[in-house]
Design a protein around this nucleic acid. Structure first.
Lengths: 283, 283
DNA sequence: CGTACCCTGCATAATTTCATGCAGGGTACG
DNA sequence: CGTACCCTGCATGAAATTATGCAGGGTACG
């Protein structure tokens, strides 16, 4: 939830203020408490801060003086000045682009709260890791998401098959994957949901595949044809949808898949070594 | 952020508190002010709130009483109770996945602050819109980003050419684009930076193209070969990099490009009409 | 047009918050 | 072992924040 002002930036400023100062144990305690409650600190009274830190109220006043302020109110005013930005998302003060970014931040926040329970992701990771080959489906807008997943997945999984074309070929390829031994399929499903995706999933399930879907909503039309649906909202503030949360969820899935693949780490290190030998990357 | 702030949940709680109350104009003004500064509100003194709302201090006290509290301090205490969670991001309380998501939120926040000045993006949008054809370069990890951009860009731009393969073909294709009349090139450059990308950009500039680059840092190795570099950090908390900010910046660029293409809206509507006629999408 | 009512800000009393003098206790050093 | 120094909390005066009585002004209704 609301994570207000605190944030790394405010904490950094506080620590900068404190460091290099000779502080007594009690003062150190106050400083630590202020960092912990960086968001509230600029608004607490000396009594409240003293209670939170477990020290006496005069110690707080002396702490402020020790830092070079005229008194505790002066310290508090300073904190409000240098950590000014805890304001509400006053729609109007952000331009169109910034509003879109903030909408995506909300989506990511929601994703973070869903990930508090990592069990569904872990289950999905195991399902995907166990499938050889692993078909990854994403059509149209979702094609890029599927491609990004497949690119990284291939570094740890021996046989990833990207299904990014629809039409009659899609069913052919699902069939081929099943014949080759696939047990699960990962689908990225973003709006506008192509009819082909729904039909493809239906076919895949009929062919015996366990379908794991990353979709924009629990009520997406693909839900009925998925065994395990992981939701991640898309942003709709711009002309074209933004899919930060689905992409990030894809990477989280990758991580979970790595955890279920015993030799993932070894494969990554092997790639790094070869890449270095070939001078593939700069820096 | 620190922008951070206040957050929808806190605002919702506030509005819930106010709605259904018979409030005078001055009180309505106070309520609105509190919503606007939802993050600070639980910590402001009656004098401060009065100043922010542009009313007298007694009006604030009366406002609290009107809402059924014993006085202003009681209202403030209530706000602190129902909006309790403004604590610092105590690393330990989030699991690995959630930490990665929060790291990406910080990246997006940084992006939002960069977008406060939309001029660079607008300039990039004009450059890209004016180039026919428009080559879009992204290799390896950045290939999916380039593909996502190209997919949407094709809905508004008549000739988008995706350059997602390196090797000797890359130069061939840059040459072809230049011969066909291209004036600019968009590059997605994410770590680990393939040597090929740097070489490709160098060649493109030599061939007369204006290079617009979305990179993970101003100091990326592609910076020297870019005419306009737009930075967007990648997340490194998981086994594989997460590129929420670059993707979002790509969509913002698309929006800016649409603004510079007079018939973008018409093309989009045409596509929607045809898609509906063909029953391409469900729902 | 007048009266009654309510809303609002000003002035000031009541309460809370902040600053400072003082004494207890702990540590370092002679 | 003693002394000197500093840190800390308690108690109290100073300053601030909050609450309430009062008067001016605006609106609704008779």
């Amino acid at each position: 939830m609301s994570e207000t002002g605190s944030e790394p930036e405010a904490i950094a400023r506080l620590q900068k203020l404190f460091e290099g100062q000779r502080l007594t144990p009690t003062q150190r305690r106050i400083a630590h408490c202020m960092v912990r409650r960086a968001a509230d600190a600029p608004f607490l009274s000396s009594v409240e801060l003293a209670e939170l830190a477990g020290v006496s109220q005069p110690s707080v006043t002396r702490f402020a003086v020790a830092l070079g302020f005229d008194g505790y109110p002066a310290l508090r005013r300073h904190l409000r000045d240098v950590v000014p930005a805890a304001e509400a998302p006053s729609e109007s003060s952000y331009n169109e682009y910034q509003q879109a970014v903030h909408a995506e931040i909300d989506n990511l926040r929601h994703l973070a709260s869903l990930l508090a329970d990592p069990a569904p992701v872990a289950r999905a990771g195991r399902l995907l890791a166990a499938s050889r080959p692993l078909p990854v489906l994403g059509l149209r807008a979702a094609g890029a998401q599927a491609a990004g997943f497949a690119y990284f997945a291939r570094k740890v999984h021996p046989d990833v098959r990207l299904l990014d074309e629809g039409g009659t070929l899609l069913v052919d390829r699902i069939d081929a994957a099943v014949r080759a031994g696939a047990s699960a399929l990962l689908c990225f499903a973003l709006p506008r949901h192509p009819r082909e995706v729904v039909e493809g999933l239906e076919y895949a399930r009929g062919a015996g595949l366990t379908v794991v879907t990353v979709a924009d909503s629990t009520f997406a039309p693909v839900a009925r044809h998925s065994d395990l649906l992981l939701p991640a909202a898309v942003g709709t503030g711009l002309a074209f949808d933004t899919a930060c949360a689905p992409m990030l969820l894809g990477r989280v899935l990758l991580e979970a898949m790595c955890d279920a693949l015993p030799d993932a780490q070894a494969r990554l290190e092997e790639f790094d070594a070869k890449a270095a030998a070939r001078g593939l990357f700069v820096e």
